[in-house]
Simulated scan of single mutants.
Amino acid sequence: MIFQLSEDELWFPEPELADEDGLLAIGGDLSAERLILAYQSGIFPWFSDDTPILWYAPHERFVLFPDQLKVSKTMRKLMNSDKFRITFDKAFPEVINACASISREDQEGTWITGDMQEAYINLFRLGLAHSVEVWENDQLVGGLYGIHINSVFCGESMFSKVSNASKAALIWLCQNKSFTLIDCQVHTSHLESLGAGFISMSQYLAYLNSDPK
């Protein structure tokens, strides 16, 4: 059953009521209050310009535990070199814009709409969203962004303009920030190769609701 949300009432149905594909609700808005309630409940928005706002709560969550990250010898060498300079929260609008505009295989257009960019930039200004930036010769060549809920980093998207830049951003995040897990939301073979795997929604919610260490 797909639930219809109103802009006038701030609520979400229980995540376990989502359809098999994870779709839980439709409608509502992208206010900071609604987005934070969504993430606190294990729910995230995923839609495009030609659809209404769609809210998902997958029954299995694709996550990466930082201490289980697989770092190849090549990437270890790269991280120890001076090829990239990596920063945190220094260029959030630029990162989300790059994630929205970069072309991806087997994907037409972007789900990071103009409204989504505006909403997440607002969360960044409120201190609720964060970005990792990867620089090469003072040019932004990669990065990622997401939402921080308790001890969980809910990753939204990443991009690379040069080889291994987004991977460097993820490795840096795992090694330099004290998150219990990184929520990758949707399965990709790339993230699986780095050590990500599935846990149940109930397990995910337990991590999500645990206090930061």
Rank of each mutant, 00 (worst) to 15 (best):
142 G>D: 08
109 G>M: 00
88 F>D: 00
26 I>D: 00
156 E>Y: 04
30 L>P: 08
122 N>F: 00
144 L>V: 07
9 E>Q: 13
175 Q>I: 02
155 G>N: 05
4 Q>R: 13
206 A>G: 00
149 I>T: 06
69 L>D: 05
194 L>Q: 04
177 K>T: 15
71 V>G: 10
6 S>N: 11
83 K>S: 08
149 I>E: 02
118 E>R: 14
105 E>F: 09
44 F>A: 06
125 R>M: 05
135 W>E: 02
126 L>N: 10
174 C>P: 02
110 T>M: 06
93 P>A: 02
31 S>T: 15
204 Y>G: 02
37 L>F: 05
120 Y>V: 01
173 L>I: 03
122 N>D: 10
19 D>R: 15
101 S>Q: 14
182 I>N: 01
24 L>G: 11
205 L>E: 04
7 E>V: 13
77 K>E: 05
50 D>Q: 15
127 G>L: 03
142 G>C: 09
15 P>V: 06
59 H>R: 15
154 C>Q: 10
97 N>R: 13
155 G>Y: 07
202 S>Y: 08
139 Q>L: 12
37 L>V: 11
119 A>G: 04
103 S>F: 10
80 N>A: 14
152 V>K: 05
85 R>E: 13
169 A>L: 03
12 F>K: 06
166 S>A: 07
101 S>G: 13
6 S>W: 06
70 K>W: 04
103 S>I: 10
112 I>M: 04
57 A>E: 09
21 D>W: 10
